[in-house]
Each structure stands twice: as C-alpha cells, then as structure tokens.
C-alpha cells in the first residue's frame, strides 16, 4: 500500500472543524436555494423577488455548483488527492454538462412545439 491513499498520518488532512464548517455551509446553501425558489414563486414579485425571478435559474445553478464543488473537493478529497482522480471526474463532468446543454438547445430550438 502506498502513502497517497492512506493519509492515516493526517498531515495533509483538513481538520474535523473544517469538515463541520463545510457541512454547515452546505446546509446554508441549500436553504438559500429553497429560499430563492420560494421568493421566485410569489404571485406578484416585488422588491427582492423582482430581482430573483429573472435570475432564478442562474442563481440555483451557481448555488448548486458551489455545493457540488465543496463535496467533491473536501469530502471526496480531490483537493489534496492525486490530480489523476480530479481528471477522471472533471473531464466526464464537463462532457456531461456539454451534452445536457447541447440536447436542451437542440430540442428547444428545433423541436419547438407550436
């Protein structure tokens, strides 16, 4: 066995406090997501809602991406682990994102049902 995958010594490991902080941040970001959703679905948008409504999709995507990155980097140890693992995850992830965007675009532009 090799040193890179058994960081039992814990020298490069984030502290337990950091893990807990991340859990809290994840929770807060989730709350923000739901909050944005609740604000955006109000009947007559005014004030904050008027700003949130047109931006709801980007807001949700950014919050979700933030949560995703936190889990991947810290809980899945990609930040301190080998770059090979990051590559194995990030490349398919980008491809997946491109395919989702491409399919949505292809269907919304061309197959628009009148």
């Amino acid at each position: 066995m090799d040193g890179t995958s058994t960081p039992a010594e814990g020298h490069t490991h984030p502290t337990p406090a950091l893990y807990l902080r991340i859990a809290v941040v994840l929770f807060v970001l989730t709350a923000l997501e739901v909050g944005a959703y609740e604000v955006a679905r109000r009947e007559s948008p005014a004030g904050l809602a008027a700003i949130v409504v047109p931006l709801i999709v980007p807001i949700l995507l950014v919050l979700s991406a933030g949560k995703f990155a936190l889990v991947a980097m810290f809980y899945m140890h990609l930040k301190q682990d080998s770059k090979i693992f990051s590559g194995l995850f990030v490349f398919p992830l980008l491809l997946a994102a491109v395919i989702i965007v491409a399919l949505v675009a292809l269907f919304s532009v061309v197959h628009l049902v009148p």
């Binding site: 040193g3 890179t4 995958s5 090979i84 194995l88 398919p92 992830l93 491809l95 997946a96």
Partner: peptide
C-alpha cells in the same frame, strides 16, 4: 503501482466518471 495510486481507488473513480454520463443522459 505505476502511478503510486491504489488500483481499487482508481477503479472507483473511473466508474464514477462513467456514471456522470449515465445521470447526464437522464437529466437531459
């Protein structure tokens, strides 16, 4: 190993990478 990485861990990451496309198709 050639990379110094554990073989099983490399396999699980490879599998996870593949799964990204599985869920991408469903989400699409």
């Amino acid at each position: 190993t050639a990379t110094g990485l554990d073989t099983r861990k490399l396999a699980i990451w490879t599998f996870i990478g593949s799964e990204c496309l599985f869920f991408a198709s469903l989400i699409s």
